[in-house]
């Protein structure tokens, strides 16, 4: 136990440095040296011990403190309540969050834990991009209906899935009003060498559900979720509500002030699910929404045309 705490502390330090980096983005053209396209989590940190020994430690996920016991996983970190604030005015559908997340969770091609929707609230209002992870609701409909408790709500607000318990009934997918969950219809292709834990949710398991997990395996190291650091526009703010500070990796803001001053809202509050994800309304935008179509493949562009077109067509 002592040992574990020590290494936890070490990683807190590292996290501070890591938070500020990572914003330059993109691989290099000078790929002469880049032998392997390393998946996320392969980030190595060197440390020199007082004995003069050089150690190499991984800065990645779930690798610092050993795999926590299932009881710890289901309880969460006491005294924390993780929240996310998504600033819609800065999103231009760059999709970096989506790809970072898919990479880091070893998702099958086509699977997305974060989806970016093109929303338009009514015919007269302007469309806007709407990135949507799992909301980690405080009254999660998905948790209520799970017959085996495979999906559970932790004390720190995170909703996780135990893929070793899940029976794949998909009831949670039907119950989640925000379509946050995806199913592993086939055998996962990429298999990272990792021991499964609900906190890392890798490797995926066939016939079970998956969803955005807020990357809780890196919380203890003070590392932000990958979507937060991957976003080039600083759309995502993440933090502990009890600490009252959220950060997008560049700036740190008081959560209560941000939410108050920018009139944050939670999506479909009327459903009573009490999400942990807050949205800042898309006002004073950094980009016109058309920017989001750049670099998109044709079929995706077409799919974004599907809004609630049905309603217009059929007016009795």
């Amino acid at each position: 136990m002592k040992n574990k705490n020590a290494s936890r502390r070490k990683f807190l330090k590292l996290g501070l440095a890591a938070g500020a980096s990572a914003l330059i983005g993109g691989g290099s053209v000078l790929s002469a040296i880049s032998k392997v396209n390393k998946p996320a989590g392969g980030d190595k940190v060197k440390m020199l011990s007082p004995e003069g020994k050089l150690m190499e430690v991984d800065r990645g996920h779930a690798l610092c403190c050993g795999v926590p016991t299932s009881k710890e996983v289901r309880k969460g970190i006491p005294g924390r309540h993780f929240v996310m604030v998504i600033d819609l005015s800065k999103c231009r559908n760059a999709r970096k969050c989506v790809s970072a997340c898919s990479k880091m969770h070893f998702l099958q091609p086509g699977q997305e834990y974060i989806k970016v929707f093109l929303m338009q609230d009514s015919e007269d209002t302007s469309p806007y991009w709407f990135p949507k992870p799992c909301f980690h609701c405080d009254a999660p409909a998905c948790v209520n209906v799970c017959p085996v408790g495979a999906t559970f709500k932790r004390e720190d607000g995170v909703v996780l899935i135990d893929n070793e318990r899940c029976i794949g009934c998909k009831f949670c997918m039907a119950a989640c009003p925000y379509s946050s969950r995806v199913f592993n219809w086939k055998k996962p292709g990429l298999k990272p060498e990792a021991n499964y834990s609900p906190e890392s949710s890798v490797p995926q398991k066939i016939g079970t559900v998956g969803k955005c997990d807020f990357c809780p395996d890196s919380f203890v190291s003070g590392i932000l979720p990958d979507c937060v650091t991957a976003c080039p526009n600083g759309v995502y703010y993440f933090g502990d509500k009890n600490e009252d500070v959220v950060t997008n990796g560049v700036e740190a803001l008081r959560f209560s002030e941000l939410v108050k001053n920018k009139s944050a809202y939670r999506y479909m509050e009327e459903l009573g699910t009490r999400p942990s994800v807050y949205y800042l309304p898309p006002v004073d935008r950094s980009f016109p929404y058309e920017r989001g179509f750049e670099e998109l493949p044709e079929e995706m562009k077409k799919a974004y045309k599907v809004k609630r077109a049905h309603l217009k067509k059929f007016k009795i």
Binding site: D43, K46, L48
Partner: peptide, 19 residues
Amino acid sequence: GNVITNQQGKASLDIEPGT
């Protein structure tokens, strides 16, 4: 010692106190 840069071209070395 040697360090290897990450995908962002960054690397760091920590020297523990007492060295």
